[in-house]
Amino acid sequence: MALDWKTATLAPVPGEESIHLRYFDTGVPEGVSEPYTTIIAIHGFSSNAGAWANSASIFAKTGFRFIAHNRRGYEGSSEYYEGPVKDAVGRYMLDLAGFVRFAVDELDIPSKDARGRGGIVLMGWSKGTASVMTLLSLLASPQDPPISLPKGLDLSPYLSVLYTHLRHLILFEPPGETIGLPYTPDYAAVIHSSKPFLQAFPEWLIPTVPEEKRHLLGKSTDVKNALKDFPVWLAERTDEKECARVAEVGLRHVPKEFGVGLVWCETSIQWCRDTGAWIAERLGDQPNTLVKTILGGHHFYNMTDSEEFVETIAGLIKELDTRVYG
Rank of each mutant, 00 (worst) to 15 (best):
L3W: 08
K6Y: 06
L10W: 02
A11R: 14
V13Q: 12
G15V: 01
E16S: 04
E17M: 06
S18G: 09
I19M: 11
R22V: 10
Y23I: 02
Y23D: 08
F24T: 07
D25G: 02
V28D: 05
P29F: 09
E30G: 06
E34A: 10
T38K: 04
A41S: 12
G44W: 00
S46L: 06
S47W: 15
N48F: 02
G50M: 11
G50A: 09
G50K: 04
A51S: 08
A51Q: 09
A53C: 07
A53Q: 09
A56S: 12
F59W: 08
A60C: 01
F64P: 15
F64H: 15
I67C: 03
H69Y: 15
N70W: 04
N70L: 05
R71H: 06
G73R: 07
E82A: 13
E82I: 05
G83Q: 00
P84K: 11
G90I: 08
Y92L: 09
D95Y: 04
A97N: 11
G98R: 03
V100L: 11
R101K: 09
A103M: 05
A103R: 08
A103I: 01
A103D: 04
L107H: 08
P110V: 07
S111N: 10
S111M: 11
R117L: 15
G118P: 01
M123W: 03
G128Y: 01
G128W: 01
V132N: 12
V132W: 04
L136V: 00
S137C: 06
S137T: 06
A140H: 02
P142Y: 00
P142K: 10
S148A: 14
S148E: 14
P150S: 04
K151I: 05
L153K: 03
L153I: 05
Y158A: 13
L162F: 02
Y163P: 00
Y163C: 02
P175F: 04
G176W: 01
P182T: 08
L198C: 03
F201N: 12
I206S: 05
P207L: 00
T208S: 13
P210M: 12
P210N: 01
E211H: 07
E212D: 12
K219G: 15
T221W: 13
T221S: 15
K224Y: 07
N225G: 00
N225C: 05
L227H: 01
K228I: 13
V232N: 08
V232L: 15
A235P: 03
R237G: 03
K241F: 07
V246P: 05
L251V: 00
R252Q: 10
R252V: 05
P255D: 01
V260P: 04
V263C: 03
A277N: 15
W278L: 09
E281F: 03
R282V: 02
G284K: 13
D285M: 05
Q286T: 00
P287M: 04
T289E: 13
L290V: 06
V291Y: 00
V291F: 02
L295K: 15
G296M: 10
G296V: 05
G296D: 13
M303I: 10
I313F: 12
G315I: 14
I317G: 09
K318D: 13
K318H: 13
R323M: 04
